[in-house]
Structure formats: structure tokens, C-alpha cells
């Protein structure tokens, strides 16, 4: 059957030029982002270079001195100490690294179970209306400025926790970690919840049809299937926990201690940069070290994201069967 109208629509030839410009623009924007990240790294690292090259700087802040315990006074035990402004400046990074790790680990231990639990509830058990109520509210938590969370931790949480747990120090790693957890929850929740709701309904039906109950469907089918997404959320959350500054600055007590206790004050890498960068003498050893801390933070988060990505890929391969 032929149609007298065939081939009569006024199609226009596609413009090569326009296509070229369009793909050019998006390519440029992709590279701009990449170059931006690269330049940030370069400029931060540039200010840290004297640590590796200048002998004057290395006298107090060599890699060796920043990592290992130092004997500052004859006859005293060697120790890790961050005291950049004392008469004898001490630049050990261990108290700061330990502080960052303590706060981030506490935050994750607090936030991940809550966030994943909330995600399971919202995606698998809550009625549609309830879900539409819960989800935005938890996500609003992400929009609260961290200075507000820090203020809340400083004034309210610290006092309540001291009353309840009897802490010696009002501001400590635990308070900071929990407050940090509040900032991490919405990140983990959102990503995990999206991962779970994106599991097709047909899989839930299949599980129900062989006699699983709702709880079993959630735990033995949806949760394992959503694992890559949940892992991605945890990685993102950890990145936030390591890098977050304001909350820990306000709620941690800011004492650069190297104790094992989770209830002592801590000082994190990020809070150190934030509180000291404003007053440091440009070009001084202290200045160089602060930039070195910035470089370390950059590398830390980079490694965490990279590691998370690798784990993610492994899990996905296992599930989707690209067998190695």
C-alpha cells in the first residue's frame, strides 16, 4: 500500500555546526570541573611544598616530626603534640588525624544504622502518605546549616549528654560525633532510600509469591539488592563526616589529645584549619603545615571515594553477574 503523502513532510537537514557547538559546550563544562578540582589540589599542595624542601621548616615540621612521637624536653616521655604557637612550636598531626577519625567513626556508627533503618521503613513499610511525610522531613535535615547543628550540639546536646552519661568533659568526641551524625543521616538516608525504592515491585511480588512475609522480603531480597546504593550513601556520608568543619569546631572541645577514650575532647583536621588559618603568618611553618593538613584531607576524601567506588563496582558485578 502506498500513500501519496509519503516523503512530503518539510524535514530540515540537521545542522552540523549546531551539533558541534552543543557537544563542544558540554565537553568544556565537563573539563572545567575536572580542571577546577585539579587546580584546587595544586594550589593547596603548592603551599605545603616547603615541608619537603625547606630546611628551616623541616627543623620543626618534617614528615618524621609530624608523624612520630617527639621528645620535647630532656627526661620527659616523648609525645604527640600539636602546639603551633608555643615558644617551642610542635606540629604533630597525630592528634588531629585521630580526632578526625574518632569523630567520623562515631558519626557513622550513630548515623548509618538510623539512616538505613529509616530508609527501610520509608521504602518498605510506610504507607504512601506517611512516606511522603517522612522523606522530605529527613531530607530537610540536610539543609540545616552546619553552624546551627553545631550550636545545637554545643548548647543543648552537650549539656544533656553530660547529665545523662556523666562525662568529665562537656564537649568531647562523642558529642561532636553524634552531632556530626545528624548531618550524615540525611545523606545516607536519601541515597539508601532511593536505592531501595528503585528495586522493581515485580521482585517483591516474586518474593511474596513463594511465601516470604514483608519482613523477609525487605531483609533477604530488597536490602541485599540495594547494597550498592546503600554503600554509596555510606561512602558519601563518611566523606562528609571527615570534611565537615563547623559542627566539630563547636562541639568537640578542640583539645588536640591523643587518648583512646571516646569521651575526651578532640580536635579535628578540618577544625584546625578553620580556626587557625585566619591568624597564621603567611609563609610561616605553621602556614605550610595547615596547607599540608588541607592536602591530607583532600587525599583522604579522594581515597575514601575511590575505595567506595571500587567496593560498589565489586558488589554490582557480583549481583549483575559480570563474573571475573
Amino acid at each position: 500500500m502506498t500513500d501519496s503523502n509519503q516523503g512530503t513532510l518539510p524535514f530540515k537537514p540537521k545542522s552540523k555546526l549546531f551539533e558541534g557547538i552543543g557537544s563542544g559546550i558540554i565537553r568544556v563544562s565537563a573539563f572545567t570541573a575536572l580542571i577546577g578540582i585539579f587546580l584546587i589540589f595544586v594550589f593547596i599542595f603548592k603551599e605545603a611544598i616547603p615541608i619537603f624542601t625547606s630546611e628551616a621548616v623541616q627543623e620543626t615540621a618534617s614528615l618524621d616530626k609530624m608523624v612520630f612521637k617527639q621528645e620535647f624536653r630532656e627526661g620527659r616521655d616523648p609525645l604527640w603534640s600539636w602546639a603551633p604557637n608555643s615558644r617551642q612550636p610542635k606540629f604533630s598531626l597525630m592528634p588531629l588525624v585521630l580526632g578526625s577519625i574518632k569523630a567520623a567513626v562515631i558519626a557513622m556508627l550513630f548515623a548509618v544504622p538510623l539512616a538505613v533503618g529509616a530508609a527501610i521503613y520509608s521504602s518498605e513499610f510506610a504507607s504512601k502518605r506517611w512516606r511522603e511525610f517522612i522523606k522530605p522531613i529527613i531530607e530537610i535535615l540536610a539543609g540545616i546549616p552546619s553552624v546551627v547543628l553545631g550550636f545545637f550540639a554545643l548548647i543543648v546536646m552537650a549539656t544533656v549528654f553530660r547529665e545523662v552519661f556523666g562525662f568529665t568533659y562537656r564537649l568531647n568526641a562523642f558529642v561532636a560525633g553524634v552531632a556530626l551524625g545528624l548531618a550524615v543521616i540525611p545523606i545516607v538516608f536519601t541515597v539508601a532510600e532511593d536505592a531501595m525504592t528503585s528495586i522493581p515491585q515485580s521482585l517483591r511480588q516474586a518474593a511474596l509469591a513463594v511465601g516470604a512475609n514483608k519482613w523477609q522480603v525487605s531483609m533477604t531480597m530488597v536490602l541485599p539488592a540495594a547494597l550498592p546504593g546503600i554503600a554509596a550513601g555510606v561512602v558519601l556520608g563518611f566523606g562528609r563526616a571527615i570534611g565537615e568543619t563547623m559542627i566539630v569546631l563547636m562541639a568537640s572541645g578542640n583539645a588536640p589529645l591523643t587518648t583512646a577514650s571516646l569521651f575526651d575532647s578532640i580536635r579535628t583536621m578540618s577544625a584546625t584549619i578553620a580556626s587557625e588559618m585566619g591568624e597564621v603568618v603567611v609563609g610561616s611553618t605553621h602556614y605550610n603545615v595547615l596547607f599540608f593538613i588541607g592536602t591530607l584531607l583532600f587525599i583522604f576524601t579522594f581515597i575514601i571515594n575511590l575505595g567506595g567506588d571500587l567496593i560498589l563496582r565489586r558488589i554490582k558485578e557480583r549481583i549483575q553477574g559480570k563474573v571475573t
Binding site: 521482585l203 511480588q205 516474586a206 509469591a209 511465601g211 523477609q216 533477604t220 531480597m221 549483575q320
Partner: peptide
């Protein structure tokens, strides 16, 4: 038991797919 219009295996191994109903 029920079989659906679109095949809907779980994102699990072949073995675990068949074993799922027994385990739950």
C-alpha cells in the same frame, strides 16, 4: 505458586534464586 509475565529473577545467584523460597 506463581509465575509472572515478565521474568523477575532476584539479583542473586541461580542457586540462591531457587533456594529462596525454601530459606524464607
Amino acid at each position: 505458586g506463581m509465575v509472572f509475565q515478565k521474568s523477575n529473577p532476584f539479583p542473586k545467584s541461580i542457586f540462591d534464586n531457587v533456594a529462596y523460597g525454601l530459606r524464607v
